[in-house]
Design a protein around this nucleic acid. Structure first.
Lengths: 215, 215
DNA sequence: TAGATTGTTAATCGATTAACAATC
DNA sequence: TAGATTGTTAATCGATTAACAATC
């Protein structure tokens, strides 16, 4: 679908937000929208929206705007949400459990098919329709099922060794909640980081900065 | 401390990562580091590191580099981690619970002093040293304690009304896990978003894009 | 002093915004 | 047809990288 390959990262990072706003409009029964009206709702410029969309194709129609339903579908397909990437989650602590239970993987291109932990207390626990397995079984599990992606919810200290094992098993795609920089360890992997600590520190900066005396 | 006020957002978003890498070096007993060596470890250019740091001050020394401990402290103080912003968390579901238990608020400039939910099942539950209170008590609680920030872990549907109440109570700083765009509702607030769904979709795009046939 | 490495200015690169012709 | 709004090219703005003089 992409017109000119390699799309800039800032464009990609805006796509989910477009998708969300269009989903809301769809729910509210809005049929068509212009780049100007969407820009006002989202706090962007109309120009940017048109630029962004035209990286992938001409989805609009002059004098009319964009079909909400059509554009929503297009963006979903650009994002690849119709995939079913088979995924495992490692680390069934509070965060891992929350991610496993909270996320709508199926509608986001993923299928969570295994959860692992090395704490005997957690092994055997049921989360969603899955049972937490021993991390020792990672190798056999991955050999039986071809796994597309791993979700890392382990402490920083456990991350490097675990990453080595997963990499050895051929896993190249990671959703990384661990406080560890995976992308520095391997160069041919795809990583999307969720660093909650970093996010909290950025909030701290923003508050501190706002309250700082002028000049 | 800032030399020239208003620092670009990309610089700010790199600070927590600097802080993390410097913390690691500190733990490993490294005393000094040059921008070149740090750049190699972090996958940045040395130039960018020097530019970033010089937004805030000249922390290095020609011919020597940067003191790891000194720089770590400086960045911590730039981020404002020595603050104790009094915070409340609303929504004690899986995600809210995970955030409450998992995060080291104290070392990140925050102090979590209240957790709220409107589900009778959850009210009274103990999380950390806190007891989940009824959301109905938000007003009285906020009037007794002066609250600096709110952490929103509620479903999208509950977010707008809740935000109205918190805003009315004078809260202007938000860590927003809800799937709702707070910053579009109020213009004079500070928001740091953690949109897990968006993040997962971006991972989906990256995988899909990587596997896309060349050209 | 000589070598190293910063702080800072200048050059380049990329992303956003503006403008407008094409067209529904 | 006239009005609206896109797709796209050009102009601007901002962020990153390179270069180098200052200096420890």
């Amino acid at each position: 679908m992409p017109k000119n390959h390699h799309i800039a990262a800032p464009v990609i990072r805006r796509l989910p937000r477009y998708y969300r706003f269009l989903g809301d409009l769809l729910e509210n029964g809005v049929k068509r929208i212009s780049s100007r009206e969407l820009s006002e709702r989202m706090g962007l410029t109309a120009s940017q929206i048109r630029q962004d969309l035209n990286c992938f194709g001409g989805f609009g129609q002059q004098g009319y705007g964009y079909s909400v339903e059509g554009l929503h579908k297009e963006i979903g397909s650009i994002l690849g949400l119709d995939n079913r990437y088979k995924s495992i989650l490692i680390g069934a602590g509070n965060l891992g459990k929350a991610v496993a239970i909270h996320m709508a993987f199926e509608t986001r291109g993923f299928d969570l098919i295994g959860i692992f932990d090395n704490d005997p207390e957690k092994i055997g626990e049921r989360i969603r329709e899955l049972t937490v397995s021993d991390t020792a079984q990672l190798e056999s599990f991955c050999q039986e099922n071809s796994i597309d992606a791993a979700i890392l919810c382990v402490p920083k200290s456990a991350a490097p060794q675990l990453a080595d094992r997963l990499y050895a098993l051929g896993i190249r795609n990671y959703w990384n909640f661990s406080h560890y920089d995976l992308s520095m360890r391997f160069k041919d992997i795809v990583v999307e980081n969720v660093h909650l600590n970093d996010s909290l520190m950025i909030l701290c900066y923003k508050i501190t900065d706002r309250d700082r005396p002028e000049q």
